[in-house]
């Protein structure tokens, strides 16, 4: 799973959000490293909808403008859970191996 996709699905994991809120969430989750612009975000949301990962929860009108509120679909939740498990497994293994380093140094010193 590409990082922007992971970030978007993560941003939708707890509650449905509209487009701009997703932009802000993605920037916050990635510590400002990934900033999705309007066209990129919209294209990504369209693709994720086609793939069944994201669905439109509802449409609302705010300040005279119609906007969609997106939610994580079941397929998206499953994909996110799988990716999270994969990342967690790698992180745990990395931590385990890093924890071995000082002891190895002690043995060789």
């Amino acid at each position: 799973m590409q990082e922007p996709t992971l970030l978007l699905l993560t941003a939708l994991a707890d509650e449905p959000r509209h487009g701009y809120a997703l932009m802000q969430e993605v920037a916050e989750i990635s510590n400002g490293r990934v900033r999705l612009r309007t066209g990129t975000l919209y294209g990504a949301l369209e693709r994720l909808q086609r793939e069944g990962m994201v669905r439109v929860e509802r449409e609302e009108v705010v300040d005279g403008r119609a906007r969609k509120v997106y939610a994580l679909a079941d397929q998206g939740a499953s994909a996110l859970a799988e990716e999270t498990a994969r990342i967690r497994a790698v992180a745990l293994e990395a931590e385990r191996r890093l924890a071995l380093r000082p002891r190895l140094k002690g043995v060789t010193a």
Binding site: H18, G19, Y20, M23, R37, T38, G39, L41, Y42, V62, D63, R65, A66, R67, K68
Partner: peptide, 13 residues
């Protein structure tokens, strides 16, 4: 079909 949603995101962004 695209204009409404894009305008909403663009305005806030």
């Amino acid at each position: 079909g695209h204009a409404q949603e894009l305008a909403a995101i663009y305005a806030e962004a």
